[in-house]
Structure formats: structure tokens, C-alpha cells
């Protein structure tokens, strides 16, 4: 596969909410894979899915669309680097967004 490598892992928060942790870059080449992972991680019974993007260094509009598609079911953790794009797209107005400290890409 020539697309960006995507690391996906799931876990639970201490309160039991599902967590999808993503590492790498999300773009058109792998947004379907990302979407599938989000769908798989949803567990309405245990609360909002925490999509942890704090180790994502690139997110394009295809990735944003995945997040928009699941706006009601997820909350998102992003590194400061991605904060502008979330703000521009308005995602932060429809999904709870937390900014992770010391994430990659801040140099």
C-alpha cells in the first residue's frame, strides 16, 4: 500500500468510554480505513467514542468528513498543530474537542 501508514488501537477510559487512538497521517488515501475504525469503535452504551488524534500529524478534509459523519457519537482529542484546521472547518462547534499538550509536530 502506497498510502499513509495509519496506526489504530482501541482501549477504554477509566470511566469505560471507548477510545480510538490514531497515529500517523489521515488523508484521502486512508480515510475509508479510518472511517471503518471509527464505526467499529462506537459503543453507544458506554458513551461517546474518544477519537484520540494527538499523535496525528496530518488531517485533510477527507478525515474531517469522517469526523463530521460521526459528530453526535464522538469526542476528539487533537494536537495543537491540528487545532487551526478544526477551527476552520467548524468541527469544534459540533464535536467536543480537546487539545492535547506536547503532541507531535509542535517542535
Amino acid at each position: 500500500m502506497m498510502g499513509a501508514g495509519l496506526g489504530l488501537s482501541t482501549s477504554r477510559t477509566t470511566s469505560g468510554a471507548p477510545v480510538l487512538r490514531v497515529v500517523g497521517e489521515i488523508d484521502r488515501g486512508n480515510s475509508a480505513e479510518f472511517d471503518a475504525a471509527v464505526r467499529a469503535g462506537l459503543d453507544p452504551s458506554a458513551g461517546l467514542l474518544v477519537v484520540d488524534l494527538s499523535e496525528v500529524v496530518y488531517l485533510d478534509s477527507a478525515g474531517l468528513s469522517v469526523l463530521f459523519a460521526h459528530a453526535d457519537d464522538i469526542e476528539v482529542v487533537v494536537p495543537p498543530l491540528l487545532a487551526p484546521i478544526l477551527a476552520i472547518s467548524g468541527l469544534d462547534t459540533v464535536i467536543p474537542v480537546r487539545t492535547a499538550a506536547g503532541s507531535p509536530g509542535t517542535e
Binding site: 500500500m1 502506497m2 498510502g3 499513509a4 501508514g5 497521517e25 488523508d27 484521502r28 488515501g29
Partner: peptide
């Protein structure tokens, strides 16, 4: 023009 080439270009 293939999506999987985007990461490499980046």
C-alpha cells in the same frame, strides 16, 4: 492521480 500517492507527495 491516485489517492494512495498523496502521502508520498507530502
Amino acid at each position: 492521480a491516485r489517492a494512495e500517492r498523496l502521502a508520498q507527495v507530502r
